[in-house]
């Protein structure tokens, strides 16, 4: 592992963690359980396209773990990890299918996978099958937030490529 790779992973993890903690301070606007913007996912996508998918996975897991240590709980860790892993799997699957001008769409699919994974975890943790009825809410939220974070990631990547970070 080169020093440059370690540094890139460390910097992007720090950025993702900062965004994660900052976002946690913003009150949730919608009174539906489990919905938030998920701004730190911008970094997961940026890392997947800027570095590699493997590094993006490392950054995502580090952010999820450290995010729970600094600003969450054990429960929050399970939700974040399940959502993060599923979203990451979708990014890996769609990486080759969509080009760099359609990162926003990859982000939407990843967000849907993220939210549905969290819903399944919620059903298990709360021991309540009725919670599954929140699925339509979470799909709508995923399309909106996923498109937003995806566009943000796409624009950031356009700038970062010029800096020749890799």
């Amino acid at each position: 592992m080169s020093a440059k790779r370690i540094t890139s992973i460390a910097i992007l993890t720090a950025v993702a963690l900062t965004i994660f903690i900052a976002e946690a301070q913003i009150p949730v606007l919608i009174a539906v359980p489990g919905i938030k913007l998920g701004l730190s996912n911008i970094i997961t996508i940026v890392a997947a396209y800027l570095l590699s998918r493997r590094d993006a996975g490392i950054i995502m897991m580090l952010r999820v773990f450290l995010g729970s240590v600094f600003g969450g709980s054990m429960l929050a860790f399970f939700y974040s990890a399940a959502g993060g892993i599923c979203a990451f799997a979708v990014i890996c699957l769609l990486y080759k299918i969509f080009d760099e001008k359609q990162i926003w769409a990859v982000s939407v699919f990843a967000a849907i996978a993220h939210n549905l994974a969290q819903l399944v975890i919620a059903v298990a943790i709360m021991n309540s099958p009725a919670i599954i009825w929140y699925a339509p809410w979470l799909v709508i939220a995923a399309v909106v937030t996923g498109a937003f974070t995806g566009v943000a990631a796409q624009l950031s990547l356009g700038r970062l490529k010029n800096l020749n970070v890799k």
């Binding site: 359980p33 429960l75 709360m126 009725a130």
Partner: peptide, 23 residues
Amino acid sequence: VCVRQGKIKNGAYPIVCLPNRVE
């Protein structure tokens, strides 16, 4: 979030408090 979910009158959506695991 659970407080702002307001009053429920039917079985469509349960009130869920994820942090305290109350439903």
